[in-house]
Amino acid sequence: RKEMTAACTPRRRIINLTSVLSLQEEINEQGHEVLREMLHNHSFVGCVNPQWALAQHQTKLYLLNTTKLSEELFYQILIYDFANFGVLRLSEPAPLFDLAMLALDSPESGWTEEDGPKEGLAEYIVEFLKKKAEMLADYFSLEIDEEGNLIGLPLLIDNYVPPLEGLPIFILRLATEVNWDEEKECFESLSKECAMFYSIRKQYISEESTLSGQQSEVPGSIPNSWKWTVEHIVYKALRSHILPPKHFTEDGNILQLANLPDLYKVFERC
């Protein structure tokens, strides 16, 4: 597991931080080997919608929660590849102030007048994250320049770009939802926020969305749709870069829909 690298990086740093090793061990302890084997050997059937997909393993048909699986995938990559990410360069710098204002204007932020003026909160978020810029760049390849612009994001899987519609809320939550006081809790909560931002979430995906850094293989055609990215990038990574937690067998994120021999018997009677 320590050699797990989802995106190509030129050289690998050895990380011996106790906090990170502890988080890696927790993933191992909570892992479910049968689910790992199923995901490793599954045959992708198709997307139901951005949140759900169908896959077959041996004779069984499964309904998989793409949102939760991708979130767990990105969390584990962030923990196992800690401080070893490439950088996704933004085509132009994104001012943190503008991103924070967009987030505060969104109902998702939960902002009320009692929280104070949005401009003041946005300025605080910019200054707060600028103070964390060195650590964010060093460990997470999340790059913020001296003017308070976001200029780079971590490359977690080759050819995958997170849904940038979720970027404003991500920046807001970096400042408000991460435990910045304790090292282990900081790395864990920061990785979880980043994983949620990178995950496939239906509120940020339309039929026209593209999450891939590449064009489709047909010359002159439109960019790959999110469905292509889910199948050929995300579920491909799920084959080798995730140890599913045991609770996925109990919380409805992986559901067995049918045993195909039983279905064949039904059709034979028709």
Rank of each mutant, 00 (worst) to 15 (best):
72 E>T: 08
104 L>F: 12
50 P>V: 14
229 T>S: 08
102 L>H: 12
216 S>L: 10
33 E>C: 12
227 K>S: 05
182 E>H: 09
194 C>Y: 05
234 V>A: 01
57 H>V: 06
52 W>A: 03
47 C>K: 00
191 S>W: 00
141 S>T: 11
56 Q>E: 12
34 V>F: 15
22 S>E: 15
215 Q>T: 06
145 D>Y: 02
168 P>M: 02
150 L>I: 07
127 E>M: 12
136 L>A: 01
183 E>V: 01
112 T>K: 15
111 W>N: 05
124 Y>E: 09
93 P>T: 07
4 M>V: 09
58 Q>I: 08
139 Y>V: 03
33 E>W: 10
174 L>M: 12
1 R>E: 08
163 P>K: 08
75 Y>C: 03
62 Y>A: 01
256 Q>R: 12
141 S>K: 07
206 S>Y: 12
28 N>Y: 13
201 R>I: 00
77 I>V: 12
155 L>M: 11
134 E>M: 11
214 Q>D: 09
165 E>F: 05
199 S>A: 09
100 A>G: 07
206 S>P: 14
246 K>R: 14
239 R>M: 03
105 D>Q: 10
51 Q>H: 04
235 Y>E: 00
156 L>S: 00
82 F>M: 05
102 L>I: 11
25 E>W: 14
155 L>A: 09
99 L>A: 09
127 E>K: 07
181 D>H: 13
39 L>F: 11
5 T>C: 04
62 Y>I: 08
106 S>Y: 10
170 F>V: 00
32 H>V: 13
126 V>Y: 05
63 L>Q: 02
227 K>W: 04
6 A>C: 11
193 E>M: 04
151 I>M: 13
157 I>V: 11
162 P>D: 01
259 N>R: 13
140 F>A: 01
56 Q>A: 15
116 G>F: 08
59 T>R: 15
37 E>A: 10
149 N>K: 07
214 Q>L: 08
223 P>K: 14
108 E>A: 14
94 A>Y: 15
149 N>G: 07
77 I>Y: 02
151 I>R: 08
60 K>D: 09
128 F>K: 08
234 V>N: 00
98 D>C: 07
86 G>C: 12
92 E>Q: 11
88 L>K: 09
147 E>I: 14
166 G>S: 05
42 H>Y: 03
178 V>L: 03
173 R>D: 03
189 S>Q: 10
36 R>L: 08
150 L>A: 02
63 L>S: 02
41 N>K: 14
36 R>K: 14
59 T>N: 14
124 Y>S: 15
4 M>T: 07
30 Q>A: 13
125 I>G: 03
181 D>K: 08
117 P>H: 07
67 T>V: 02
182 E>N: 10
136 L>Y: 01
93 P>Q: 10
115 D>Y: 06
9 T>D: 07
69 L>T: 00
23 L>Q: 02
193 E>T: 08
215 Q>W: 07
101 M>V: 10
52 W>N: 02
167 L>P: 01
239 R>N: 01
6 A>T: 05
256 Q>N: 06
75 Y>T: 02
181 D>F: 12
227 K>P: 05
146 E>P: 09
10 P>A: 06
58 Q>P: 01
268 E>K: 06
20 V>F: 03
67 T>A: 05
75 Y>H: 05
9 T>F: 13
12 R>L: 14
131 K>P: 10
225 S>V: 10
183 E>H: 03
15 I>G: 04
101 M>G: 04
79 I>W: 01
8 C>N: 15
254 I>F: 07
220 G>D: 14
85 F>R: 03
143 E>W: 09
269 R>I: 05
89 R>K: 10
213 G>R: 15
227 K>T: 06
265 K>Y: 06
270 C>R: 15
76 Q>P: 01
183 E>D: 04
98 D>H: 11
104 L>V: 07
210 T>S: 07
35 L>W: 06
82 F>E: 00
130 K>D: 11
259 N>K: 04
245 P>N: 04
153 L>R: 00
52 W>R: 02
237 A>L: 06
203 Q>F: 08
134 E>T: 08
194 C>R: 01
232 H>Y: 07
117 P>A: 07
115 D>M: 07
172 L>Q: 07
141 S>G: 14
223 P>M: 15
174 L>D: 00
189 S>F: 04
182 E>W: 08
51 Q>I: 05
50 P>Y: 07
240 S>P: 00
45 V>M: 06
265 K>V: 04
27 I>N: 03
106 S>Q: 11
111 W>T: 05
174 L>K: 01
219 P>E: 13
59 T>W: 11
232 H>R: 08
126 V>I: 05
55 A>T: 10
145 D>V: 03
126 V>D: 07
55 A>E: 01
175 A>M: 15
153 L>T: 02
108 E>Q: 11
243 L>T: 09
172 L>D: 02
130 K>T: 11
36 R>I: 05
121 L>S: 06
188 E>K: 10
126 V>Q: 07
134 E>P: 10
36 R>S: 15
8 C>A: 10
197 F>P: 00
143 E>S: 10
61 L>G: 04
90 L>W: 04
51 Q>D: 09
19 S>F: 02
235 Y>I: 03
184 K>F: 06
139 Y>G: 02
21 L>D: 04
17 L>P: 04
130 K>M: 10
179 N>A: 10
56 Q>T: 15
230 V>C: 07
240 S>Q: 13
17 L>H: 05
242 I>H: 01
228 W>C: 05
190 L>K: 00
29 E>Y: 10
65 N>Q: 02
60 K>P: 01
44 F>D: 01
80 Y>A: 15
139 Y>H: 04
62 Y>L: 13
192 K>W: 09
125 I>V: 11
197 F>K: 01
77 I>P: 02
234 V>G: 00
246 K>G: 12
242 I>T: 03
164 L>V: 08
189 S>H: 13
131 K>N: 12
138 D>A: 05
119 E>L: 14
129 L>Q: 02
11 R>N: 08
241 H>Q: 06
154 P>F: 01
112 T>G: 12
87 V>R: 10
212 S>V: 14
69 L>P: 00
129 L>C: 04
253 N>A: 13
164 L>D: 03
27 I>A: 05
224 N>R: 15
121 L>R: 14
28 N>R: 13
128 F>W: 09
166 G>Y: 03
66 T>R: 00
192 K>E: 05
156 L>F: 01
211 L>K: 07
225 S>G: 15
36 R>Q: 13
219 P>R: 14
189 S>Y: 05
252 G>K: 06
27 I>P: 00
109 S>E: 07
227 K>E: 05
266 V>I: 15
53 A>S: 09
84 N>Y: 01
235 Y>V: 00
246 K>P: 04
30 Q>H: 08
44 F>T: 02
157 I>E: 02
55 A>G: 06
54 L>Q: 00
98 D>L: 06
27 I>E: 01
110 G>L: 14
227 K>D: 04
236 K>M: 06
41 N>Y: 10
175 A>P: 04
101 M>R: 13
217 E>N: 12
118 K>V: 06
160 Y>L: 02
113 E>C: 15
212 S>R: 15
14 I>W: 11
108 E>G: 10
58 Q>S: 14
138 D>S: 05
233 I>F: 03
250 E>V: 11
249 T>I: 11
103 A>R: 02
160 Y>E: 00
64 L>P: 00
47 C>E: 02
